[in-house]
Design a protein around this nucleic acid. Sequence first.
RNA 1: UGUCCUAUGGUGUAAUGGUAACACAACUGAUUUUGGUUCAGUCAUUCAUAGUUCGAAUCUAUGUAGGACAACCA
Length: 554
Amino acid sequence: MLEEKVQKNFLEEIIENDLKEGKVKAIQTRFPPEPNGYLHIGHAKSICINFGLAQKYGGKTNLRFDDTNPVKEDTEYVDSIKEDIKWLGFNWAIERYASDYFEQLYQWAIELIKKGKAYVDDQTNEEIRLNRGTVTSPGKDSPYRNRSIEENLQLFEQMREGKFADGEKTLRAKIDMAHPNMNMRDPIMYRIIHTSHHRTGDKWCIYPMYDYAHGESDSIENITHSICTLEFDIHRPLYDWFIEQLGIFPSHQYEFARLNITNTVMSKRKLLQLVKEGYVKGWDDPRMPTICGLRRRGYTPESIRNFCEDIGVAKRDNLIDYSRLEGSLRDDLNKRADRVMGVLHPIKLIIDNCPDDFVDELEAVNNPEDESKGTRKITFSNTLYIEADDFMEDAPKKYFRLTPGQEVRLRYAYIVKCTHCDKDENGNVIAVHCTYDPASRGGNATDGRKIKGTIHWVNAKDCVNAEVRLFDRLFDAEIPDKVEEGKTFLDNLNPNSLTVLKNCKMEKAVIGAEHLKKYQFERLGYFSVDYDSTKDYLVFNRTCTLKDSWAKQK
RNA sequence: UGUCCUAUGGUGUAAUGGUAACACAACUGAUUUUGGUUCAGUCAUUCAUAGUUCGAAUCUAUGUAGGACAACCA
């Protein structure tokens, strides 16, 4: 893990080559989110690639908001995006907005009109669509395609001045209506939108389209490597065309395959729908694949970065198993999370040969992976809580926990031997009885006998209550979007993705833990303190379970 | 019925004409006061066919499969 990675991905290959051949002196990348939603794990991959590459090769990365569509964008999203990038551990060189370049873009549009490379079209939305043709048949020229330069100039100026209603006119690049690539069939450069913009207010009523704004913004910022996802591959000829016609700094676009993860959806539109229609409790619901959701769930920035590094970068479609993300998380938290004992489904364990006034204080290790984390004291009495499934009246032979006649070790405490259990009138186990071996203090048998099982516990006499939220996959289906006719991804929602336990028992060490503090509850998993947690009412999110080879064996 | 992209173990990613490698998962076994961690071991005739070559995962051709593209979205 520490050794230098020798395998280079195709982007590193390209960059090293450009640097070696002197095509660029230093690399400059950018991360270009549209402020119309919250960032998700797929964006994290893009962020890691863009910032990571620049870091690795001594270049810089700009943050540029692609805010060319005022009807969808909002400052709420700008703020969350910046917060998430910082939280992931990256710093941008400069913060820019495509809207910063509206005037320059406008001037360049005039330049293209003057060169006879752009024209104002009066066709309606419908007409434009019809005349564009299809992927298998060519389009038809607009009747307005051959207007004079003077007329185009005048009309375009009037568009800017607000002389026309939304949709009445567009500015189009004059390329080729029969081009096999649909993007080259006289793409729209500007449309009229009389909507106030989150940054420019009502200064503009014409807004540039992505294809025109993006490459030109890259060029203005001297972006050397403009890295995006595969679906923009087909836009590259247009990206290059604008830059070439304008004769400006030649940024180049490179495409990689976007991240897909099992049992989750990654489209901003669908995530927005989940939030708006109340299927989750917000953008930062711990079941969401958003950065803020993962953060609240208990993920660390390191684990997300390691995950993105692990999955690599290439151009073929991929589907990463969700457990891979959990693997990166466990890897990180195993080294860093303090251990603590907590019981999710408590039942009483009564030690019959232990006096009622018996009090003992034992020493527990905070993190076996990190000695510097030290130890803490835990208290012990004759009445404890243990996990309900750590007792079975009729147990299979390989069950190493409590069952009548069997000995187990109470972690850091004593060896106990199960004797019997109490049941209510319905036959449910309500308490387990045992005797303890006073000589085994700390957990070691004096006669050297082997104890197979060790279970966690808390002292019923001084533990604290806590709420614990358990999460399961938000979607049952591996690919939620793969649905039969007439169904949607919503039909694949897992109705049991959230379980709230309100009667959990924790050792006192967790009192006062700040939000987002991470623990490993021994034998159970990793847990993070939720934002809803207060001094008087503890709330934990289970980030993920520990690997459980016993569950598989069963 | 077009153009473009892609195809290597269960999942990802390497191998840049010269012995198919690494990680994760899975499965064995060892260690273990977390059924965790850790350690050791096992797990592929590179989508198909034909060709070029002393030699092909890599180059060529033809298929096949998957994906993208017909928003005044990005």
